[in-house]
């Protein structure tokens, strides 16, 4: 054999039995892997994500701090004509609108109000959706009824609720919230129902049932940890959608009253005078787009990062 030729000098004493070490045989290479750490590491690996997260945090922080520290009234109408439609300057960073209001100030109020509204809608859609989805997923009997409800709710135009509510309670943040949240929850519920259905019948969940684990602990230990990343993703994706809807409703003219300072209203008011004073629309629009794009990207990237298959 050619192998034997190149064999090195061996020590005959090495050919003795060695004591067996149980621990050595069990060595699988402890990887020190943690799901959440890996998720965040994967998430922040992309430079774009880091930039967007920083940007969005800065914008939101600014929108909450600015109204507290600034003494400029966003609704203050200038009586002097020369204060109207001013181009951006050091005094008015984003210029002034047709009534001489400072657009920079209005933009931050708008970001704050729009974000809060969108955040509440996201919270209610995902929150209610998850709870209903869980109940739906756990009760097969509910299936036909829930699908019927889904069909009905998604078939009634949300403008119907909006206009109706507006008549009853006047247009306000609340009516806008109710009418927009009135159909989002069922869409989310259906999404969560499908996910929970697959968890429900998985073996580890059956094992918990065999052990007699109470529902409360099954929810907190078996279900929520597996769908928390979905909750975050859905909530993040809800925000650009809600802001978009608000802009749309403002455009149609059935959104919030004109004196409400939201991004939707600012953009729509700016649009009217766009040909003459494009800066009035452009600058707030850029902020709005940064917010929606950032949340969209963050939601999607987080979904990717939370999938263990993508963990690096």
């Amino acid at each position: 054999m050619e192998n034997e030729k190149k064999m090195p000098q061996l020590n005959p004493l090495k050919f003795r039995a060695k004591v067996f070490d149980q621990m050595l045989s069990e060595d699988t290479g402890y990887s020190n892997y943690s799901y959440w750490r890996s998720t965040f590491r994967t998430f922040f690996k992309s430079k774009a994500v880091v930039v967007l997260v920083v940007l969005i945090c800065a914008i939101i922080l600014m929108s909450f701090i600015y109204p507290l520290v600034s003494d400029v009234d966003p609704n203050k109408v200038a009586l002097k004509r020369k204060m109207w439609n001013n181009r951006p300057s050091w005094e008015h960073l984003f210029g002034t609108d047709g009534l001489g209001r400072d657009i920079w100030t209005r933009a931050w109020y708008g970001v704050r109000n729009s974000f809060l509204l969108a955040f509440c809608i996201a919270l209610s859609d995902v929150g209610i959706g998850m709870i209903v989805g869980a109940i739906w997923g756990y009760n097969k009997k509910l299936d036909p009824i829930m699908i019927e409800i889904y069909n009905i709710i998604t078939n009634i135009p949300s403008t119907v609720y909006l206009v109706l509510l507006a008549y009853i309670m006047n247009t306000s943040y609340l009516t806008l919230f109710i009418s927009m949240a009135s159909r989002g929850w069922i869409v989310e519920a259906r999404f969560f129902r499908n996910r929970i259905l697959s968890i429900r019948d998985s073996e580890y969940n059956l094992a918990s049932r065999c052990l007699g684990t109470p529902m409360r602990r099954i929810a907190t230990k078996n279900i929520i940890p597996h769908i928390i990343s979905l909750i975050i993703m859905e909530a993040a994706l809800c925000i650009p959608y809600s802001i978009g809807s608000e802009v749309f409703l403002g455009f149609v003219g059935i959104g919030l009253p004109v004196d409400a300072i939201t991004l939707g209203n600012i953009v729509n008011q700016g649009r009217a005078s766009f040909t003459l004073h494009p800066y009035q629309m452009l600058l707030p629009t850029i902020i709005l787009c940064i917010i929606t794009v950032a949340f969209y990207v963050i939601g999607n990237k987080f979904a990717d990062a939370s999938d263990p298959r993508n963990h690096v």
Binding site: M1, N3, E4, M7, P8, L10, N11, L13, K14, F15, R16, A17, K18, F20, D21, L24, S25, D27
Partner: peptide
Amino acid sequence: APRNPDAMEIDFEEEPPLFQ
């Protein structure tokens, strides 16, 4: 070798060749 209770010391040190 780590899973072989009858392993020899050399099993942990040198890779064995193919013996006929």
